[in-house]
């Protein structure tokens, strides 16, 4: 009895020792010399693996950061400037300041403004519908509403509004990784510079058709009437291919173009409501 116990203990110990030796040599042989800083940098990154930096994942980006001479053009949109600064400190380099941005939908063709003319019967996919025809409405440039961007978003920042049939992007959740921009077959999503209080002024239309055709398809289409171009004092507005575009970097949020736009295709978001002049006067009289 006791001999069995002893034999067992000895044989198992021997087996363990042999395995340990083999493991040790194997580990030596296959040891990969890796910069230990990569692990530290990766730990500092948000681990979203969204690909917003242009690399496949956070690990690849960490490798690129460690290998990089300067941080020019390297930016983690999810972590933002803070994360980049802390990594720069870690690696003894300086991080550039990148403007935080947010995704914005350049279409406002709700069913109310953009009547349906056909019924699409097929796979719910913007790409497939886009390859087939111009969509359920007569606008060849507008949102198809099948939600390819919703599927592409890894942060639950986009959902389709059941009333407007358009995607709604949550400013708080959006990290500007750009996945939705790539997923949209009609290139309707733009990453725009974030402003104070998430204020936004942009042309919510991408229609490149001539004004008459565009307005027939959708009541809030940009018809390239040039009114906004004339009223803008900062040269932020350009008109190309029959539609206006507001440069978020030049825009000062004066809101003059919004009032001027005859088709209401320029949107203002997160602004306090305008006080009509009459009302203001009334208030002064009363006060």
């Amino acid at each position: 009895m006791s001999s069995t116990v002893i034999v067992t203990i000895i044989s198992l110990s021997l087996l363990a020792a042999v395995s340990a030796i083999i493991l040790y040599f194997v580990a030596q042989k296959f040891h990969v010399v890796e910069d230990p800083r990569i692990d530290d940098v990766q730990a500092a990154l948000p681990a979203a693996n969204c690909g917003g930096c242009g690399y496949a994942g956070c690990r690849n980006f960490a490798e690129a950061l460690v290998a990089a001479e300067t941080f020019d053009g390297l930016n983690c949109p999810v972590g933002g400037n803070e994360v980049m600064k802390s990594i720069a400190g870690m690696l003894g380099k300086t991080a550039g300041e990148a403007d935080p941005s947010v995704a914005v939908l350049l279409c406002n063709g709700t069913p109310q403004y953009r009547p349906k003319t056909t019924r699409y019967d097929g796979v719910v996919s913007c790409q497939i519908q886009h390859n087939l025809y111009l969509g359920e409405t007569n606008c060849s440039y507008g949102c198809l509403g099948d939600g390819d961007c919703v599927k592409a978003c890894g942060f639950d920042a986009i959902m389709i509004d059941s009333e407007t049939m358009l995607p709604v992007i949550s400013d708080d959740k959006c990290v500007a990784c750009g996945a939705c921009v790539k997923s949209c077959p009609r290139h309707l999503i733009e990453l725009r510079k974030k402003a104070k209080k998430d204020r936004k002024i942009y042309v919510a239309c991408s229609n490149c058709d001539k004004g008459a055709v565009a307005i027939k398809a959708c009541k809030v289409a940009c018809i390239a009437c040039n009114k906004c171009l004339k009223v803008c004092e900062f040269g932020a507005i350009t008109i190309e291919k029959n539609r206006a575009y507001i440069d978020a970097k030049k825009c000062t949020f004066c809101r003059k173009c919004v009032a001027e736009c005859s088709t209401h295709s320029i949107m203002e978001v997160n602004f306090p409501p305008r006080k009509p002049k009459v009302e203001t006067e009334m208030l002064t009289i009363n006060g």
């Binding site: 349906k116 003319t117 056909t118 019924r119 699409y120 019967d121 097929g122 497939i128 087939l132 025809y133 359920e136």
Partner: peptide, 9 residues
Amino acid sequence: MNNQLNVSL
């Protein structure tokens, strides 16, 4: 046309 046509692949 009052009724919308179906379009599919």
